[in-house]
Design a protein around this nucleic acid. Structure first.
Lengths: 341, 341
DNA sequence: TTGAAAGCGGTACCAG
DNA sequence: CTGGTACCGCTTTCAA
């Protein structure tokens, strides 16, 4: 900054002001400073700035994965909302590890963001303390909890799993399977929903569930439905923990010559972009991820700028089942099984 | 830090040392400090730390999109390589905008990373200056250039497009189309490769190319091939700028009852995870993205730790065509057309 | 092995 | 509207 000041023939303080509060400085000086800045390709040191001013204009965002399609719309919304307002967004990934999440939270807090958005509600006690102690607004997203750290904008993953399964049951299916990968908290919640729905309907689930600790992928979907089909060729419907698995399951059915939805109905979760244009299009549980990112961002902006907190610290953004060609109701229950006997 | 020092009954300097250089303080003190740190959930202020020490242990990574699958393996490699070595990775997205890229570079440089990895070679002149002036190692990735800012680890996207098209030509196809979305530098390079291959083979491309400025997606792939098919029902093969488009094109063919690969061969680019397990599996140009991320990370680590720079500042990681079920050679050239006449 | 003092690069407060 | 000064929180000398 001293160099810029010298080049512009002013004091360092004036450079700082010309950059931070351009209107407090005369136009002539402002131009001289701007010229010097661009001449020297000067970039202010955020560390020094933060130390001196206590403001960072930074919002920290933690997601489970940078590359899972689920976080795409969410992150897009966060950027769309916060960047125009002059905030800087720093994104970290916990890579589906609670330990790495702890580290990432510490790293983030060390940067003194003005608010934190974190995906999920299953932080470790230590992570919770770090977040509580940080003294900035914290929004937990994607899931819903009765005991938020601060603010919570999400949906009930369990209810989503429950209703997806209910949807298949209502369609007359009885042998309904469930597949999941990367058993994170949200996958568990959806599975709990599946189990509850099956139990309520007094349907058995033995041999109808397949999971893997590996990350979710299209190929995993194929392998998991394969596991179930190898055990039980009578599978009638499948609820997949996410759309990647659903797509993989669809491909595997096609490879095995099993008609979807005629012989097996498939339901995914999240309604990723490709679900609607697969062949057949995949029925899925749509989650309003863009909306969630926008809401969370707006809430923290409001708190930062006005100190005003939302009336309700817990916002349910809900979900919706998008019925498409990968599912079909069975006209008369058990008709298919009768046929094959 | 003062609070921690007081609680541990030592001076602030000692706290700093216990945290940074644990072996320089006695074990007893170290434990007292650790206890106080965790008692108070203390997190050191990176801004102050950076200001005092000039080291940030941070590597800045800029990609075009956080959510395009292409960057997934790359980012995974970067994290896998740098985190265990004690570096912090901060990832920014330019969201396919050169303007936003400039901003993001400035933001990043303001944080004083110890090295910068940036996807692509098409930075604006201003962005280039910022990077050159930053004084830290800069690695441009994904593409290859004769005029790198500093170090370059990538592959020739143009050559990839060229060889993918050559592959289809060698398969006896004549009416070969090209589709692309989000016309960034890499899409243009691949298209240049396609054009060159077609020209060399004296094949016409009129009406066989469809593009859109929208982001790439599976649905866009369906629409783009639809555009071509509506103009020219004789399309024999299609080179898609990426695998998402290829998948969408495949679905659209299935919807229209066009057999793949019997009537149309489809080639994608990047060999994303789903390509190999689609039905039929999609032929694609595999790019070693994990390898690229690992190499780039190792190079900057070496420079930071030993000052030793690679002999060759330009590393070609290459690519490979993975031939799969979505393409089929036509036994005798033009046989198909003869048949339909 | 521990403590005291200086200073990293800015910004806020006050004076002129 | 512009400049001087103190100080943000920590780490690196240097001395004890």
């Amino acid at each position: 900054m001293a160099d810029v000041a010298k080049l512009a023939g002013v004091s360092a303080v004036t450079v700082s002001r010309a950059l931070r509060h351009p209107r407090m400085v005369s136009a002539a000086l402002r131009h001289r400073v701007d010229a010097a800045v661009s001449e020297l390709a000067y970039v202010p040191d955020v560390a020094a700035s933060r130390l001196a001013s206590a403001r960072t204009h930074t919002i920290g965002v933690i997601v489970s994965s940078l590359t899972n399609g689920v976080f795409a719309d969410y992150l897009r919304a966060v950027h769309d909302t916060l960047l125009p307002a002059g905030f800087q967004v720093v994104v970290f990934s916990s890579r589906y590890s609670l330990t790495e999440e702890e580290n990432v939270i510490a790293t983030l807090i060390g940067q003194h963001p003005e608010a934190i958005l974190i995906a999920g509600i299953d932080q470790t006690p230590h992570a919770r303390r770090l977040l509580e102690r940080s003294g900035v607004p914290v929004v937990q997203t994607f899931e819903l909890t009765d005991d938020p750290i601060d603010i919570n904008v999400g949906l009930s993953q369990r209810q989503g799993g429950y209703e997806a399964t209910r949807f298949l049951i209502a369609g007359g299916h009885r042998r309904i399977g469930y597949i999941a990968a990367r058993l994170d908290a949200r996958a568990h919640a959806r599975m709990a929903g599946y189990n509850r729905a099956m139990e309520e309907a007094k349907l058995p689930t033995d041999g109808l569930v397949a999971t893997t600790p590996r990350p979710s992928s299209v190929s995993a979907g194929g392998e998991l439905i394969g596991t179930i089909l190898d055990r039980d060729a009578e599978l009638e419907a499948l609820f997949c923990c996410d759309d990647n698995l659903a797509l993989g399951a669809l491909f595997e059915c096609q490879r095995r010559g099993i008609a979807v939805p005629d012989r097996i109905s498939i339901v995914g979760f999240n309604d990723l972009e490709f679900a609607a244009c697969a062949h057949p299009p995949i029925t899925s549980v749509a989650t309003p991820r863009y909306e969630m990112g926008r809401l969370a961002s707006e809430i923290v902006m409001k708190i930062i700028e006005t100190g005003e907190r939302p009336d309700n610290p817990r916002i349910d953004v809900g979900f919706a089942i998008r019925e498409r060609g990968s599912t079909r109701a069975i006209p008369q229950p058990r008709a298919r099984r009768a046929l094959s006997e």
